[in-house]
Nucleic acid binder design. Structure first.
Length: 581
DNA sequence: GGAACTAGCGCG
DNA sequence: AAAGCGCGCTAGTTCC
């Protein structure tokens, strides 16, 4: 399956770094040792002219952890084409239902649940690699890495469906490359534009600290209506007591609860909460901490979520408020391609379930309009809540009421999520299209179920167990869809990355040096969020980049679902700011 | 005085 | 209409 592919496994050893060339079958061809400082240069040479034994094939770097090994390369201006991230692949293989239960990769080891190695931004030196430190990050010593790689290849070859699990490992590995590159390049961020939004929304920032103007006004108004000049707006318990005193019997201070009450304090209070949120999460302090040299550089954590979605750490990269997207501004001479997939999850569901009727409704731009058009429900809004209810497991309200209509119209798709829920409720494990399995039920969960079904179970225990079963069912119901959507998105990202790399570099005077030495001279990914991405591109390459983003979406669909007739239409725009309607 | 918790809200 | 999935982050609160 991997015949002809060349692997170069790297790890620590001796006085520095050891690289081992393997042929497609895993046989060792050569081995060399060099110092940490030579690492980028060695990679540069191999990427340009692969070793004779592996010439003519794509080199794949095999390493313990992408953040740890690739970041120094990017800092030195070196990119790689392909890699295998053993930490991420281990996590997949270890729990995948597609991997045989007796595979060596599944026995307990130091690769289990190893956190990502943390790479200090300003310290590209490989000081962290000199030890095989167990506490943080997976093993990095060359023998441990070679052994793990061998275990992983064996597990994949013996898997129930080698192609799928191989695809998933490749997709997660390339996603790790993208994450490292996006951190290196950063998201172009216009501090002045951000500050303009803050001033417009929050009001002028007082020189001596304290609240911005608009917020201070709102505090004053709220206090008048609460008839308490010292009322606290930031402490939920105190605020709740103040509200009770003026006759607002709210049970919590959340906005969807407060919205239900008619009282003059409500409007300014809700407005205050909206502003306070912006100030706390993305105010001037956030700017000072996270935006440097015109770039926002969060740490992306590929597959950081159980479902395989990305997580992030620091700066709230995945929660940038829509309103602040207008601060995302391209460098001079550059622009953005901004794209998102319309209704990714139901499309993925249609394809996984081979549900031709749902795929038919999904044909074209708007899947929800298609559900209306085929007569399943009367309005687009109903189509949307019904579909979300089906994928999330709604039990009450409009959503739950409408789901049966979807069951009649799209029995195969609905059977897939219903079955995933049933398996979860029974304590079982569900698996995505490419083979990522959800965590098993915890011992406590199983114990609670046994307790409730036994003779001695009390009503309260039965109730709690039933609720826990329902919770797990909704989790597994959503897992298969969200997780497969994440796989599609990783495939999309990987394809976009590979195709962008083929575009010609721009001359030095048209480069974007703040994007770092490895990425400054060509279009590159700058942001990714579940089902949308932003490419930062020289103006002259914008149309080509947009075409790549589109065709990559189609490729991702074929890669996962073959010839099944499902399309993945994009909302796509080219423009100097990343603001979307 | 810090760790661990919750509430609330931003994103998909 | 705020029910039903997955997250991260801040501020306030509680507990040691």
């Amino acid at each position: 399956m991997v015949t002809g592919a060349g692997w170069i496994v790297v790890g620590t050893g001796g006085a520095g770094v050891v690289a081992v060339g393997l042929d497609g079958a895993g046989a060792e061809l050569w081995r060399e040792t060099f110092t940490e400082g030579e690492w980028p240069d060695r990679v540069r040479r191999r990427e340009r002219a692969p070793h004779a034994e592996t010439a003519g094939t794509a080199v794949r770097w095999v390493w313990s952890d992408t953040a740890r090994w690739y970041s120094p390369l990017l800092a030195a201006g070196v990119r790689v084409g392909r890699c295998r991230d053993l930490r991420l692949c281990h996590a997949i293989l270890r729990s995948s239902a597609l991997v045989r239960s007796d595979a060596a990769v599944r026995s307990p080891s130091r690769w289990d649940a190893a956190p990502a190695g943390d790479v200090p931004e300003a310290a590209p030196a490989l000081f962290a690699m000199t030890t095989d430190a167990a506490a943080d990050g997976p093993p990095a010593g060359i023998e441990a890495v070679l052994a793990e790689f061998a275990r992983q290849r064996a597990a994949m070859q013996d898997a129930v469906d080698p192609r799928r699990i191989e695809l998933l490992c490749a997709a997660d590995s390339v996603a790790a490359l993208v994450a490292a590159e996006m951190r290196a390049a950063g998201l172009p961020w216009d501090v002045a534009a951000h500050e303009a939004v803050l001033e417009e929304v929050l009001g002028r920032r007082p020189a001596g600290g304290g609240l911005p103007e608009r917020m201070a006004e709102l505090v004053a108004q709220v206090r008048v209506h609460l008839r308490d000049p010292a009322a606290s707006l930031d402490s939920p318990p105190k605020l709740l007591r103040s509200l009770h005193r003026v006759g607002v019997p709210a049970a919590s201070t959340s906005k969807w609860e407060l919205r239900e009450y008619e009282h003059p304090v409500i409007a300014p209070l809700l407005e205050y909460k909206r502003l306070a949120r912006l100030l706390a999460a993305n105010g001037w302090a956030w700017l000072a901490e996270w935006v440097h040299d015109g770039r926002f550089r969060p740490v992306y954590v590929p597959a950081g979520v159980v479902t395989g979605r990305w997580a992030s750490s620091g700066g709230g990269a995945l929660q940038i408020p829509r309103r602040l997207r207008e601060a995302v501004r391209a460098d001079p001479g550059w622009t953005f391609v901004v794209a998102d997939v319309a209704q990714l999850e139901p499309r993925v569901l249609a394809a996984m379930a081979r549900d031709v009727a749902l795929a038919q409704a999904a044909h074209g731009r708007d899947l929800y309009a298609g559900i209306v058009a085929d007569g399943t429900v009367p309005t687009r809004a109903e189509a949307k809540v019904a579909m979300l209810g089906a994928m999330y497991g709604a039990t009450t309200g409009d959503s739950a009421r409408l789901v049966p209509r979807l069951r009649r119209a799209y029995p195969r798709a609905m059977a897939l999520v219903d079955e995933a829920a049933r398996v979860g409720e029974d304590g079982g494990v569900v698996t995505t299209w490419l083979g990522r399995s959800c965590p098993p039920a915890s011992p406590q969960w199983l114990q609670a179920q046994r307790q409730a079904t036994g003779e001695t179970g009390t009503a309260a225990e039965r109730d709690r167990a039933r609720r826990a079963a329902g919770d797990r069912g909704r989790f597994t119901r959503n897992f298969v869809v969200q997780g497969t959507a994440a796989e599609w998105a990783a495939a999309w990202l990987g394809e976009v990355r590979a195709r962008l790399a083929e575009l010609p570099a721009v001359p030095p005077d048209e480069a974007a040096p703040r994007s770092g030495p490895a990425l400054a001279d060509r279009p590159h990914l700058a942001f990714f969020l579940h089902d949308e991405l932003i490419v930062h591109t020289p103006l002259g390459h914008a149309d080509a980049a947009a075409e790549i983003v589109r065709t990559a979406a189609a490729s991702a669909g074929r890669l996962l679902f073959g010839a099944f007739p499902i399309d993945f239409p994009l909302e796509l725009a080219i423009g100097p700011t990343a603001a979307k309607d």
